[in-house]
């Protein structure tokens, strides 16, 4: 019961603040609303027994990406008087509503089938969430992990090259 109330609270705040991200004129207000969204999505991860991912969500999204965005907002000094939406707004709204109806139809009509994995909740709770993720990450997914570090290196070099005035 308490979990249900918690879920509905987290979902409601996530959706309302996501709406604020889209409809706020001032980019700083959008960024603050995005911060609220990230924190509540971390709460949803906690409800789903993924404590490690909740911590990483707050560290990476709220800690790194959002600080980067706010830093760029301060650097660019975006003007406050402008047209918010482009010509597509009615079409885009219509497309969004139609797409949501389709997704809702499919979600509510399908049953979850398929093979269960080898990490039931009791086992995850017993060995610890971080340990389970770490074991999978450094045995089965070692090569993707190394590729991820390469992606970060490329992103770092690319950001420096793009943002530098003259190379």
């Amino acid at each position: 019961m308490i979990l249900n109330i918690l879920f509905f609270y987290l979902a409601a705040v996530t959706i309302i603040s996501a709406l604020f991200v889209v409809i706020k004129r001032n980019a700083v207000h959008s960024a603050i609303a995005l911060l609220v969204t990230f924190v509540h999505v971390a709460g949803i991860f906690l409800l789903l027994n993924s404590e490690f991912l909740a911590a990483v969500q707050i560290l990476v999204y709220a800690g790194a990406i959002l600080v980067l965005i706010i830093f760029v907002i301060m650097y660019l000094n975006v003007t406050q008087r402008y047209r918010m939406f482009n010509r597509l707004k009615l079409i885009a709204f219509f497309v969004g509503v139609v797409l949501f109806a389709e997704v809702l139809y499919i979600i509510t009509r399908t049953a979850l089938k398929g093979q269960k994995g080898e990490f039931p909740i009791a086992k995850v709770l017993e060995m610890g969430n971080t340990e389970a993720i770490g074991k999978a990450l450094f045995t089965d997914y070692l090569f993707p992990f190394e590729v991820a570090s390469l992606i970060l290196l490329v992103a770092m070099i690319g950001a420096i090259v793009l943002a530098k005035k003259e190379i």
Binding site: V60, A64, I65, L68, L152
Partner: peptide, 27 residues
């Protein structure tokens, strides 16, 4: 809900790509 660890690992990689994408986009 499917008692798996693979989805959580994928989220980890998506976060990596999101960080890279944000840095490149802002640059």
């Amino acid at each position: 809900y499917m008692d798996s660890m693979t989805g959580r690992i994928y989220v980890f990689f998506i976060m990596t790509v999101a960080a890279a994408e944000a840095a490149i986009g802002l640059a």
